[in-house]
Simulated assay, not measured.
Amino acid sequence: MKRDVSSRIALNVIRPAELVFAIAASRHYSPESERVSATVDGSPLEPEELLDAHGTRLHRVMAPAGRFVMEYSATLPDGASAEADEVERLVYLRQSRYAESDAMAPTAEAEFRGIQGAAELLAAVSSWVGTRLSYVPGSSLPTDGATRTLLARQGVCRDYAHLCIALLRGLGIPARMVSVYAPGLSPMDFHAVAEAWIDGAWRAVDATTLAPRSSLVRIATGRDAADTAFLTVVSGRADLVELTVGATADVLPDDDLDHLVSIG
């Protein structure tokens, strides 16, 4: 499958700022073509590429005051599947800032007691989250975690992913968050899904069912949204004024929710 992805982020930099972007396709892909550019008031800046955990490519820019624009585009074939070692799987069993698996463990045990097999638990958790939450843009705060999402019964993609992650970890299944480009998503935006370690591989979990899992393009991977944000303002001040995301595939597949799917 071939996918074309793009993003454009415009900022008003009020005070000189150190900016870090996670918008490039991860190292799991070998792009047929790719372009990364940054400008301030039309003058080019050179982003510095840094490699984070799991092949996440970060681009750091020291931006002076002015109108800053970061653009990315790529044409991508299928990529390699992500792997994991024992230490990594232990990390993704622990609670994290937005996926409070210690607090969610009693709920997970009560709701999914008696279900045998990791794949069966994965399907059950995804279905449970998808039916308990309503997708409501703008309904959650950037500081909301899984517990608050469950109480509110609504959220956006990152909230669905956090709740899935917390429940899966509470059931003893390693789980983590992935930010992605998502062909088929409407309205188009950066998307967030969960991944769970099932049958020796990381499997995509998207309780929103808003885009086919097999068309997803991995950007950043981590414990939760704290590790996968598309923009981090490390210092200074920069206000977001425009965000445009594009993602298309030459073939948009059906998504059989009964099948295990890996992002690749």
Score class of each variant (00 low, 15 high):
residue 108 A to L: 08
residue 145 G to W: 03
residue 79 G to D: 11
residue 40 V to E: 07
residue 242 E to S: 10
residue 241 V to W: 08
residue 15 R to H: 14
residue 201 A to K: 15
residue 26 S to D: 07
residue 29 Y to M: 08
residue 217 V to W: 04
residue 55 G to Q: 14
residue 157 C to D: 15
residue 128 W to T: 01
residue 12 N to P: 02
residue 195 E to V: 06
residue 243 L to F: 02
residue 199 D to S: 12
residue 152 A to P: 05
residue 242 E to A: 14
residue 205 V to K: 06
residue 119 A to Y: 05
residue 190 F to L: 11
residue 112 F to G: 07
residue 61 V to G: 05
residue 90 L to Q: 15
residue 15 R to G: 03
residue 175 A to C: 08
residue 27 R to K: 09
residue 182 A to F: 05
residue 236 G to L: 08
residue 144 D to A: 05
residue 221 T to E: 15
residue 147 T to I: 02
residue 187 P to K: 04
residue 12 N to T: 12
residue 11 L to C: 01
residue 161 A to S: 14
residue 215 S to W: 04
residue 262 S to E: 13
residue 86 E to L: 06
residue 78 D to N: 14
residue 172 G to R: 13
residue 223 R to H: 10
residue 51 L to Q: 09
residue 174 P to H: 14
residue 221 T to Q: 14
residue 213 R to C: 00
residue 189 D to A: 10
residue 245 V to E: 04
residue 196 A to C: 09
residue 208 T to H: 10
residue 143 T to F: 02
residue 217 V to D: 03
residue 31 P to H: 07
residue 117 G to D: 06
residue 142 P to V: 01
residue 71 E to K: 04
residue 170 G to E: 13
residue 147 T to K: 10
residue 235 S to A: 11
residue 164 C to I: 07
residue 50 L to V: 12
residue 228 T to S: 03
residue 163 L to K: 00
residue 103 A to Y: 04
residue 169 R to F: 00
residue 157 C to N: 12
residue 138 G to K: 10
residue 139 S to C: 00
residue 234 V to M: 11
residue 107 T to Y: 01
residue 56 T to W: 00
residue 164 C to M: 10
residue 122 L to S: 06
residue 24 A to S: 12
residue 239 D to Y: 07
residue 87 V to G: 07
residue 177 M to K: 07
residue 92 Y to E: 10
residue 223 R to A: 09
residue 110 A to R: 05
residue 175 A to T: 08
residue 154 Q to R: 15
residue 61 V to F: 03
residue 162 H to S: 08
residue 76 L to A: 13
residue 132 R to W: 06
residue 133 L to M: 14
residue 171 L to Y: 08
residue 134 S to K: 11
residue 8 R to K: 10
residue 113 R to T: 13
residue 162 H to A: 03
residue 77 P to F: 09
